[in-house]
Measured scan of single mutants.
Amino acid sequence: LTDEELVTMSVRELNQHLRGLSKEEIIQLKQRRRTLKNRGY
């Protein structure tokens, strides 16, 4: 997933992508998404 996709994707879509990932990967992705959102994309 690109940063842009992460930010513009709805939470529902995101959760579908996260299905099948490990807990660590999910946590990393969610942190990255929060960081991007805070940057004001």
Rank of each mutant, 00 (worst) to 15 (best):
N15G: 06
T35D: 14
N15Y: 14
L1H: 02
H17C: 11
I26V: 11
G40W: 14
H17K: 11
I26T: 06
L36Q: 02
R34G: 04
M9G: 01
R33W: 15
R19C: 05
E25G: 04
I26G: 12
Y41L: 14
Q28Y: 14
Q31A: 13
E13H: 05
M9R: 02
Q28V: 12
V11R: 15
T2C: 04
E13Y: 03
L6R: 00
L14T: 00
L14N: 00
V11W: 15
N38D: 11
T2K: 04
E13K: 08
Q31R: 12
L14S: 00
E24M: 11
E4Q: 10
V11H: 11
E24P: 09
L29N: 01
E25M: 12
V7R: 08
H17T: 05
I27A: 12
R32H: 03
R39K: 14
R19A: 09
E4T: 08
L21P: 00
I27V: 11
K37E: 05
G20E: 05
V11Y: 12
T35P: 01
I27Q: 12
K23E: 09
S22K: 07
I26L: 04
R34K: 11
G40E: 13
E5C: 14
Q28C: 13
H17S: 05
K37Q: 10
L18I: 09
D3P: 02
I27M: 12
R33H: 12
E4A: 10
E4S: 08
G40M: 14
Q28N: 10
S10N: 06
G20D: 05
K37P: 01
R19E: 08
Q28L: 13
R32Y: 04
R39F: 10
I27N: 09
E4R: 10
V11A: 10
V7Y: 08
M9V: 03
H17M: 10
I26Q: 15
S22P: 10
K23Q: 10
V11C: 15
E4G: 06
L6D: 01
L36P: 01
G20M: 06
R32V: 01
K30R: 13
Q16I: 13
L18T: 06
Y41W: 11
T35G: 07
E24G: 09
E24A: 12
L21K: 13
S10Q: 03
V11I: 14
I26D: 01
T8R: 15
Q28T: 10
V11N: 12
L14V: 03
L6V: 03
K37A: 05
D3L: 04
D3Q: 02
R33S: 03
R19G: 05
K23V: 10
R33F: 15
N15W: 14
V11P: 08
S22L: 05
Y41R: 08
L21R: 09
L14H: 00
G40V: 11
E4P: 03
R32W: 03
I27T: 10
R19L: 09
N15E: 11
H17A: 13
K30G: 03
L18D: 01
T2P: 03
S10W: 00
L18P: 00
K30F: 15
S10T: 13
I27F: 12
Q31T: 10
I27H: 11
E13A: 08
L1A: 02
Y41A: 12
R12L: 08
T2F: 02
I26P: 00
I27W: 12
R32Q: 02
E13Q: 11
R39D: 10
L6E: 01
R19Y: 07
V7W: 06
M9K: 03
M9N: 02
T35S: 12
L14Y: 05
R39W: 09
T2S: 11
G20C: 06
Y41F: 14
M9W: 03
R39M: 15
R32I: 02
Y41I: 13
R19S: 08
L29P: 00
R39Q: 15
E25R: 07
L14G: 00
R33G: 00
S10R: 04
R32G: 00
K23I: 11
G40F: 13
G40A: 11
V11M: 12
R33Q: 06
L18K: 02
G20H: 09
T8A: 13
L21F: 07
N15S: 09
K30W: 15
V7D: 04
R12G: 07
L36C: 03
K37V: 07
E25K: 09
D3R: 01
L6G: 00
L29H: 03
L21Y: 07
M9H: 03
L29S: 01
I27S: 09
R19P: 03
S10P: 05
E4M: 12
T8N: 14
L18V: 07
K30V: 14
I27K: 13
G40I: 15
R33C: 10
Y41G: 12
N15F: 12
K30H: 08
E25T: 09
R12A: 12
L6N: 00
E5R: 09
R33N: 01
Y41H: 13
R39A: 15
Q31E: 12
Y41T: 13
E4W: 15
E5D: 09
R19Q: 10
D3C: 05
R12C: 14
E13P: 00
K30D: 02
R19H: 07
Y41S: 12
L29W: 04
Q28F: 13
L6Q: 00
G40T: 07
R39L: 15
M9Q: 02
N38V: 06
I27Y: 12
K37W: 05
G20R: 08
R19D: 06
D3G: 01
R19I: 10
E24F: 09
N38C: 15
I26N: 04
L14K: 01
N15I: 14
K23Y: 10
H17G: 02
T2I: 02
E4N: 08
R34Y: 05
L36G: 02
E4H: 15
R33V: 07
R39P: 09
L6Y: 00
V11L: 11
L6F: 00
N15D: 07
N38K: 14
L18C: 10
